[in-house]
């Protein structure tokens, strides 16, 4: 384990029920810090969430803080836009290659041959996809790293001011709650304000997009988007605070789990991880280096179905 920090991962929270169960598991009375940056402009609209919680909460307003930073630090926003352009171009190239590699893998998994065993061909086809994912992961990580170095974020006066304010707020809380939303924005804001490194032992509860941001890799997925191919794709590195887990929030709605080839491909492509289906009732609790799972929590199995996480 990279860290012994207590981390609880949850799925979507339309009623905040498992969120409160998770808070109970921490046995805290609060207050807690709230990060709703993934809601973007709706960040301040946390009234329902706060009133549903069993403990008091203070919103760190990370989205608003970055908006303010971008208003005053024009060089910073310009450089970040340049970074986004580079990442977008890399993504476009990745998508082109991914489309062909995945089509080839799907073809191999759909095909039966009466004379020969196609398993080596299937493994080879899926390995091509893994290589592509790895290359893209490394390329995007390099771009992010280069810009972080160039931007010297930690020494920019406004960033220092906001980081201090965030640290001060975190000083008085017993846990950090990270909501779902736009996964890339959550990741970027957490990195920007160094939230998860500020107080190392503070427990974290993160749901949906928030859970994705804590993982080693962020993978976007949806089998039936109204536009686009629907090919699952790596975004880039997450914060790497939980290893061996690839959180798949709302996977029952977003993935066709009755398609064994699709499930097999997903599970084998990301076989370094447990591809965990996070639904409204799922709770994954890492404490003292071990994972506890709520009953019924499932993962994508390489055999093309859902399987209990402890199997």
């Amino acid at each position: 384990m990279k860290s012994e920090r207590r981390i609880i991962l949850l799925g979507p929270q339309p009623r905040y029920e498992s969120l409160n169960l998770a808070i109970e598991r921490l046995q805290i009375k609060g207050p807690v810090a709230l990060i709703t940056a993934g809601w973007e402009e709706d960040e301040p609209e946390d009234g329902d969430l706060k009133s549903s919680l069993s403990v008091p909460a203070v919103n760190l307003r990370l989205f608003a803080r970055t908006e303010q930073l971008f208003t005053f630090d024009r060089e910073l926003i310009q450089q970040l836009q340049n970074r986004q352009d580079e990442l977008r171009h890399l993504r476009d190239a990745y998508r082109i290659r991914l489309k062909h590699a995945l089509a080839s893998a799907r073809d191999m998994f759909s095909r039966q041959d009466p004379l020969i065993d196609l398993d080596p061909e299937r493994e080879s086809a899926i390995e091509m996809v893994r290589i592509l994912d790895r290359q893209y992961f490394l390329r995007t990580s390099q771009v992010v790293h280069d810009y972080e170095k160039k931007l010297q974020i930690a020494s920019r006066p406004l960033v220092i001011k906001h980081r201090r304010e965030v640290q001060k707020l975190l000083h008085n809380v017993e846990a950090i709650l990270i909501s779902g939303g736009h996964a890339a924005i959550i990741l970027n804001r957490l990195r920007f304000f160094n939230v998860c490194q500020v107080k190392r032992r503070l427990p974290i509860i993160a749901w949906s997009g928030g859970a994705m941001a804590l993982a080693e890799q962020i993978v976007f997925f949806h089998d039936h988007p109204p536009q686009g191919s629907g090919n699952p794709e790596v975004l880039r590195a997450g914060l790497g605070m939980v290893d061996r887990i690839l959180p798949l929030p709302d996977a029952r709605a977003r993935l066709d789990l009755n398609n064994p080839i699709g499930v097999t491909l997903f599970a084998r492509r990301f076989d370094r991880f447990n591809c965990v289906v996070l639904d409204e009732r799922s709770i994954l609790d890492r404490m003292a280096g071990h994972w506890w799972f709520s009953e019924g929590t499932e993962k994508l199995d390489q055999a093309g179905r859902l399987a209990g996480l402890n199997t």
């Binding site: 979507p12 996964a183 949906s208």
Partner: peptide
């Protein structure tokens, strides 16, 4: 309409996990 509107103005579905 779904095909049309989501092509003209794509929503944040792909990147958003609430």
């Amino acid at each position: 309409l779904r095909d049309a509107l989501s092509w003209l103005y794509p929503g944040p579905l792909w990147v958003t996990y609430m």
